[in-house]
Design a protein around this nucleic acid. Structure first.
Lengths: 108, 108
DNA sequence: ATTATTGTGTTAGTTAGCTAATACAAGAGA
DNA sequence: TCTCTTGTATTAGCTAACTAACACAATAAT
């Protein structure tokens, strides 16, 4: 899951250019010091979500669908904001207090 | 960890009144359908952090130190805000964009 | 004093998710 | 054609964290 999220963020933030080939399963596993099986499972998830596509015997590539990436970026931004409000609500803050808190924190 | 965070939030948000007795280890475990050992470990952590205190053979009680609770509440609020900015940064947003995003989300 | 309730400690068993090691499939490139 | 690189699949073994089932300690309540 950590691998999935990391790579997803890298694609969304533009650290990978659409169409880029990503590391082979084996090399990726070696780099992260984890087992190839773990990487493969993670990448399968990413493929199901549409972030990458597999070209067998060539490798796996970042999607070239810029619209898709942009939409996912927007989606995740909303999600992160909602998560923040939810967290703050659990701590007993109102929405107004939460907004005030984050603008104050943002000024630092 | 989930147990710890949940209870911490309940104390901070005021769902527990300071000085309240919390469920016994056994009852707590039964309620959450987990093993008593798991609860005990979780509560030991909470005690080390100062949220609860143990009175042997009587039970465990929420701290009465209101100043402590208030401070923790503030601390966590900052942490949540920082987490949000960090998440957004990972997605490739600037701080300004992140602020804009959350105020927009907050208006809904 | 006795009993019930509480926290705490210990040992063994279980399980999910990973690692390890290997094999096979299939197209690229020489 | 042959070899290399890639994805994919399979089987077994390991480990952390949990469950299970107790036992013991201490004191409040009766």
């Amino acid at each position: 899951m950590q691998v999935v999220n990391k790579l997803k963020e890298e694609i969304i933030s533009g650290e990978f250019t659409p169409g880029d080939k990503i590391l082979s399963v084996r090399d990726f596993a070696y780099t992260l010091k984890v087992n190839p099986n773990t990487i493969q499972r993670a990448l399968t998830n990413l493929e199901e979500e549409g972030f990458i596509i597999t070209k067998r015997t060539s490798g796996k590539f970042v999607t070239e669908d810029l619209v898709f990436i942009k939409q996912k970026k927007k989606e995740l931004a909303s999600l992160k904001a909602l998560e923040y409000f939810k967290n703050m609500e659990n701590l007993g803050f109102t929405k107004e207090e939460s907004l005030l808190n984050i603008t104050k924190e943002g000024e630092k």
